[in-house]
C-alpha cells in the first residue's frame, strides 16, 4: 500500500515538474512551447558536466542550471517567441522547429550520453522496501513548488498582474500592466523551472539528446487537460494522470499504463473542454453565487 502511494507520488512529481513550465507559458501568454523539453535538457547537461565531471556540489549545480536555462529562455523569447504573441496558433509548429534543432545539438554534444551524476543521499528502508531518499526529496520539491507558486500568484503584485493578463490580456494592458515585461518574466520563470526539473532528474536517467522528449508527452497532455490556470490545472492534471498511469502500470504493465493515460486524457477533453481549470472556475462561480 505504501508502495502504491510512493509510486503515485513519484509519477505525480515527474509529471508536475515537467508540465509546470509549459503550463505557465500557455496560461499567461497562450503559447504552446514545444521546446520545454529542451530547456530540461539544458538543465540536465549543465548539471551533468558541472557535477559529474568538474565535481561541483549538486546544489550549486542546480542553481547554475536554472540560471543558464533562464538565459536560454530569454534568448528564445527575444529571438522567436516575441513575434508569436499575436499568433499563438503558429507557436506549436515554430517551437517544434526550435525543439528538433536543439535536440540534434544535444545529440551531437552528448554522443553516447552525458557523464553520469550520482543521485545524492541514499535509501530509506521501511519494512522490506527501500525508497530512494532522493526521489522522496523530489516529491517534496514538487509540493513546495506548488506552494511557492501559489504564494507568488496570489499574494504578490507580480502574481496579480499575471492573473489579470491570464484572464484578459487587452484589458490588463489598458490598465497599465506592462504586458511585454510580463511575457519576459513568464518565460524566464518557465524556463528556469524547466531547467530545475531537468537538472533534478538528471541523476536518475541517462542524459542524451532526446532527454527532453521523454518528458514532453506527459507535459503536453497535462498542460492540455489542466487548462489555462497553471496552478490548479497542472496540480489536478498531474494528479489524475499520475493515478491512472501508476495504477495501470503496477497491475497491467507499462504499456497499458501509457495507453491508459492517453485515453483518459482524450476522455477528459471530451467531457471537460476547458480542462480542469475551466471546471474549477465554473465550480467557484457557482459557489460564489450562493
Amino acid at each position: 500500500m505504501l508502495q502504491m502511494i510512493y509510486n503515485f507520488l513519484e509519477s505525480f512529481a515527474y509529471i508536475s515538474l515537467a508540465a509546470i513550465g509549459m503550463s505557465i507559458v500557455y496560461g499567461i501568454t497562450g503559447i504552446t512551447n514545444m521546446a520545454q523539453g529542451e530547456f530540461m535538457l539544458i538543465g540536465a547537461l549543465v548539471v551533468s558536466y558541472l557535477c559529474g565531471v568538474a565535481g561541483i556540489p549538486f546544489i550549486i549545480g542546480i542553481v547554475l542550471a536554472m540560471a543558464v536555462t533562464a538565459i536560454a529562455g530569454i534568448i528564445l523569447d527575444r529571438l522567436v517567441l516575441v513575434r508569436l504573441y499575436n499568433r499563438p496558433g503558429d507557436s506549436l509548429v515554430c517551437t517544434y522547429g526550435v525543439s528538433i534543432a536543439l535536440m540534434q545539438v544535444g545529440t551531437i554534444l552528448t554522443g553516447v550520453g552525458a557523464p553520469a551524476v550520482q543521485s545524492p543521499f541514499g535509501t530509506l528502508v521501511v519494512g522490506n522496501r527501500s525508497y530512494s531518499v532522493y526521489k522522496i526529496l523530489l516529491i517534496a520539491i514538487s509540493f513546495i513548488l506548488f506552494g511557492l507558486l501559489y504564494v507568488v500568484f496570489n499574494k504578490s503584485r507580480f502574481g496579480l498582474h499575471a492573473r489579470a493578463t491570464m484572464e484578459k490580456r487587452e484589458i490588463a494592458a489598458s490598465l497599465g500592466i506592462n504586458v511585454s515585461k510580463m511575457n519576459i518574466l513568464v518565460i524566464v520563470l518557465a524556463s528556469a523551472l524547466g531547467g530545475l526539473g531537468g537538472a533534478l532528474y538528471a541523476p536518475t536517467m541517462s542524459v542524451t539528446g532526446t532527454y527532453g522528449s521523454n518528458f514532453l508527452t506527459h507535459a503536453f497532455v497535462a498542460m492540455i487537460i489542466g487548462g489555462s490556470n497553471p496552478l490548479v490545472g497542472t496540480l489536478m492534471a498531474a494528479g489524475l494522470l499520475a493515478v491512472v498511469e501508476s495504477f495501470l502500470s503496477l497491475y497491467f504493465g507499462a504499456f497499458i499504463g501509457r495507453i491508459g493515460m492517453l485515453l483518459v486524457a482524450i476522455v477528459i477533453i471530451r467531457l471537460i473542454p476547458g480542462g480542469f481549470s475551466g471546471l474549477v472556475e465554473r465550480m467557484m462561480v457557482r459557489l460564489r453565487k450562493r
Binding site: 550520453g113 543521485s119 541514499g122 535509501t123 530509506l124 528502508v125 522490506n128 522496501r129 527501500s130 525508497y131 530512494s132 532522493y134 526521489k135 541523476p203 536518475t204 536517467m205 541517462s206 542524451t208 532526446t210 521523454n214
Partner: peptide, 19 residues
C-alpha cells in the same frame, strides 16, 4: 536502448535495503 539506462539507478536504490 538509451532510455533503459535509467533502470540501473532506480533498481539499485529501490533494492539496496532488501533482506
Amino acid at each position: 536502448g538509451s532510455a533503459a539506462l535509467s533502470f540501473y539507478e532506480q533498481y539499485y536504490n529501490a533494492t539496496s535495503g532488501l533482506d
